Amino acid sequence: MKRGIIATAFVLLGFVFPGVANAETPPGCASAGQIGSTAYIKFQGNNIASVKQFAGCGSNWSYVYMWESFRNSGHHWITQTAVAVYSSASDSTPDSHQGGKADPYDPKELWSKPASTLTKCTAAYGLVSVAQDYSYNKYTGKRC
Rank of each mutant, 00 (worst) to 15 (best):
S69K: 11
D133P: 00
R3I: 12
Q53N: 14
Y65P: 06
A124W: 00
G99L: 01
Y136K: 05
G45H: 01
K101E: 11
N22K: 15
I78L: 13
G19K: 00
K42N: 12
Y125E: 06
N22C: 13
S73Q: 05
Y63V: 01
A21K: 09
A89V: 12
N60I: 06
V11I: 15
C57R: 02
G99E: 07
C57F: 07
P18Y: 00
R143A: 08
A131W: 05
K52A: 13
I5L: 15
G14F: 04
R143P: 00
I41V: 09
S37E: 15
A23Y: 15
Q132E: 07
T117Q: 00
N46G: 01
T8M: 15
S73P: 04
S88A: 12
A23C: 10
G36Y: 09
Y139K: 00
T122L: 03
G58V: 04
S37T: 15
N137R: 06
R3F: 10
D95R: 13
I41F: 00
A124E: 03
W111V: 06
A32V: 05
K101F: 08
T122D: 02
G141K: 04
S62Y: 01
V83F: 04
S129T: 14
S90D: 10
I5V: 15
G74D: 02
S50N: 14
I41C: 01
L127R: 07
T117W: 02
A82N: 08
Q53Y: 05
A9M: 14
A7M: 11
T117K: 01
G141F: 02
G45N: 08
S87G: 13
C29K: 04
L118G: 02
V128I: 07
N22I: 14
A49L: 05
V85K: 07
K101L: 12
A131S: 07
G56T: 00
A7Y: 11
F15T: 13
T119I: 03
A89E: 12
S31T: 15
G36D: 10
H76F: 12
F17A: 12
A9S: 14
F10W: 10
G36N: 01
H76G: 07
A9E: 09
G19A: 04
K2P: 13
R143D: 06
N47W: 03
A32F: 07
W77G: 02
V11T: 15
V83S: 04
G100M: 08
L13H: 01
P27M: 01
D133K: 07
A84V: 05
C57P: 05
F15S: 08
Y63P: 06
Y63H: 14
A32S: 11
T140R: 00
G45P: 02
P26L: 08
E68F: 04
A23L: 08
Y125A: 03
N72G: 09
